[in-house]
Simulated assay, not measured.
Amino acid sequence: MFSAYDREGRKVCLLHYNNEEIKGMREKTFSCPDCGDPVILKTGNYVTPHFSHKPNKRCRHHVEGGEGKYHENGKRDLYYWFQQQGIFVKLEYYIRRIKQRPDLLVKWENKYYAIEFQCSTIPGEVIVNRSRQYLSIGIHPIWLIGMRRISYKSDHIIMQRFEWLFFQKLSKESISPRLLSYCPNVKRCLLFDEPYPYKRKVYGSARIQPLHRFTFAHWFQNIENMKSSFINKWFEIKKMFRLTVPKRLSRQEQIFRNWLYEKGFHPQQLPAYINVPISSHYKIETPLYIWQAFLCIGFIKDQEIGETFTYNQCLEYVERWIMYRNIPFYHDDKEPIYEYLLLLQHLGIIETVGKYTFMKVDNIHLYELLEEALRQDALILQRLQV
């Protein structure tokens, strides 16, 4: 951390001093703003000057993630970035009312924001509880993750379950959850919207560039929709799904394939409207093709033409097979099962006879030839681009 109290109780922020001044502080005594225990001033030719607890201390700050050079450098970069925009910013400001010390406390357009740059894995409950405490006194939390936690490619990112906790709603105008990420090593910031996950890969709309080319206002603005190029990519995903079998099957994948084989079907035969992306499917951790196949093959296929069924019946059937994703900082009215039913209506498989009641109007057809399946995949995805 960059801030500590000296013996007289004055707050010392190392970012306000040059290297020579900091070296002159080595013999002074400092204490942690959180727990009050003594901290050590660390400095040197290859060390970013900072304060550190003595070994084995159980300060809340250490228990909830600690800090390292990567985190310190990122926090410093963001601090100077806000200053350069003329935005009020406090580094490691201790909020006594809730006993929290965000990395940065920012005031912008008459609102306070707690900026947290998270680089280590900590329990999700800690993240949620800390955010709730900020909100309880009118401070809006904004979380960034260290970019080394994810792998950014030209059209997708690769990440683990933990990183999903940081998708958030930053403004009332947000059209999708947003992930913010920063790398102090290369000074680049990533804004990532409209997540469409496929296994560990997440496709979406991304904007990545040097931090100095962003303003704080950019964090709240929507990114240009990349749906056209994304749909083309999804055709390749569907093609790979039909043509290849994973070398290692997860337990969930094995259960699904066994279920499909017991019904006499193969993944290559699945209708083109299975494994089709919808805007809210990120809310379900279970792979898209699994829960859509369970709904179409396991439930709708058994209905007679002209027979009606309800959304709640579909939900009750499918929820036995799915696991929802934990995204605590983004909420909207979209429900993936219902959104998928509306897609099937658009494609002419079912019709709406009431807001939550549907009627089957076409049979669920499985393909005999791979060529026909791939042709139908292309046609379905073309209709989604319209």
Rank of each mutant, 00 (worst) to 15 (best):
M1V: 05
F2G: 08
S3G: 00
Y5S: 05
G9K: 08
R10Y: 14
K11S: 14
T29W: 10
F30N: 02
D37Q: 12
P38K: 02
V39R: 05
T43G: 00
Y46K: 15
H50F: 02
H50V: 11
F51T: 01
S52I: 05
H53N: 08
E64D: 14
G68L: 00
G68N: 15
D77A: 09
D77S: 12
L78N: 07
F82K: 00
Q84A: 11
Q84K: 15
Q84C: 12
Q85W: 08
Q85Y: 07
L91Q: 06
L91T: 01
Y94T: 10
K99S: 13
Q100N: 09
Q100W: 02
P102D: 03
D103P: 05
L105E: 00
K107D: 02
Y112M: 01
V126Q: 06
R132K: 14
Q133T: 05
I137Y: 07
I137Q: 02
L144W: 06
I145K: 03
I150W: 04
I150F: 06
I150D: 06
Y152N: 00
D155N: 15
F166G: 05
S176A: 15
L179S: 08
S181C: 04
S181W: 10
L190Q: 03
P195Q: 00
A206T: 07
F214C: 07
T215C: 03
Q221R: 14
N222C: 04
N225G: 00
M226C: 14
M226L: 09
M226V: 13
E236H: 12
I237N: 01
M240I: 08
F241A: 02
K247M: 11
E253K: 04
V276R: 00
Y282L: 05
I284K: 04
W291D: 05
A293F: 07
Q303K: 15
E304G: 10
G306R: 01
F309E: 01
N312Q: 15
E316W: 03
I327C: 07
H331S: 14
E335D: 13
L342V: 14
L344Y: 08
Q345M: 13
H346D: 15
V353I: 15
G354S: 10
K355M: 08
F358C: 00
K360M: 08
Y367L: 07
E368W: 07
L370K: 04
L370Y: 07
E371A: 06
E371D: 09
A378S: 13
A378Y: 08
L381T: 05
